[in-house]
């Protein structure tokens, strides 16, 4: 059995404020349909959505065996803007929790934790969906970004504390930080080195280290269209591309537990967005979805 996971920052309603035109909403529906039907995504986490967006995307996509989990909680002045669309035959939601860290009068959204259970599974999948603040409001490598990494790490360790072995924990979202930034590599301890992660199971594995550069190689005389990240900004001194959208895994997914990561399914999904794509200022879509796959071996309908 496999479960396909994806994250997409839709750009429909940043901070819970709807801004999409009818055409843009219709295109978002097409993206959700493509991800669920063509890519077979079973668990699609979405960012910059409202509860109404989640309902509309589910209904307009005509997904009959899917449901949505609304994570768009308002907490004081803070507005969570993520949610999940998940396949009912493969997953059910056990529990959810929105995690906020507060320093002085300032609050930061750490993650929405959603515990999911697959049929006949021995243990839940603990999913942490994050949409960290933009670098416009929370500076690169600033103290608040470190704090977000530290508190997300604490939340992961709290789940680990419930088990004797490493649990199945998946983190996904738009961190507005690259895999190499201190918040993710230094504080969250999301590493690129699988061997080291197996040796030190406290580390997380971040397969999106492999998606930092150009997706296609340069071939002499044959220039190819490529992307070198998950989102595009209009300006940048040395890059306009960033790999802010990532999916990370606890060490259990590297072969020590029930579920295993199938990294062949880890990818940036290059959706042909209208009006010039993610690099164009003529549409709201500036993030590609990212996807990954986990696999569980079964024999004769029973767990191995």
């Amino acid at each position: 059995m496999q479960i396909s996971l994806a994250w997409w920052n839709t750009s429909l309603s940043p901070l819970g404020k709807p801004r999409a035109t009818e055409q843009e909403k219709a295109f978002a529906v097409q993206v959700v349909r493509f991800l669920t039907e063509a890519l077979g995504v079973d668990c699609l986490a979405l960012g910059e959505v409202t509860a109404a967006d989640l309902g509309d995307l589910l209904q307009e996509s005509g997904l009959r065996d899917y449901a949505y989990h609304d994570g768009t909680l308002r907490f004081g002045r803070l507005q969570f803007d993520t949610g999940l669309i998940y396949r009912l035959t493969k997953l059910r939601v056990l529990h959810s929790l929105s995690i906020v860290t507060k320093r002085g009068n300032h609050s930061l959204k750490v993650a929405n934790r959603v515990d999911l259970l697959a049929p006949d599974s021995r243990s839940p999948l603990h999913l942490f969906v994050s949409h960290w603040p933009s670098r416009l409001w929370c500076e690169e490598n600033g103290a608040n970004r470190h704090l977000l990494g530290i508190r997300l790490r604490d939340a992961v360790e709290e789940v680990s504390g419930l088990y004797e072995r490493q649990p199945s924990t998946i983190l996904m979202g738009d961190y507005n930080d690259e895999p190499f930034d201190s918040s993710l590599s230094g504080q969250l301890l999301a590493a690129r080195d699988r061997k080291l992660v197996r040796k030190n199971p406290q580390l997380l594995y971040n397969p999106f280290w492999r998606h930092l550069g150009e997706q296609e190689p340069h071939i002499p005389g044959k220039p190819r269209e490529s992307v070198c990240g998950t989102c595009h900004s209009r300006s940048g001194l040395t890059t306009r591309w960033h790999t802010f959208d990532q999916i990370m895994f606890s060490s259990a997914f590297l072969g020590s537990n029930e579920w295993e990561l199938d990294e062949r399914g880890t990818q940036i999904v290059r959706i042909p967005f209208p009006n010039g794509g993610v690099s164009s200022s003529r549409n709201i879509f500036d993030h590609y979805p990212v996807a990954s796959v986990i696999y569980r071996e079964t024999q004769h309908g029973k767990l191995c």
């Binding site: 909680l73 907490f75 004081g76 959810s96 929790l97 929105s98 995690i99 906020v100 860290t101 507060k102 320093r103 002085g104 009068n105 750490v110 704090l147 508190r151 604490d154 939340a155």
Partner: peptide, 22 residues
């Protein structure tokens, strides 16, 4: 402080006072 599906992590006095008011 955890209630109503929210976990509020208070890093200092002001944050704690705000969370208790919430």
């Amino acid at each position: 402080i955890t209630w109503a599906g929210t976990e509020s992590i208070c890093e200092d006095r002001i944050a704690l006072e705000e969370a208790l008011a919430e």
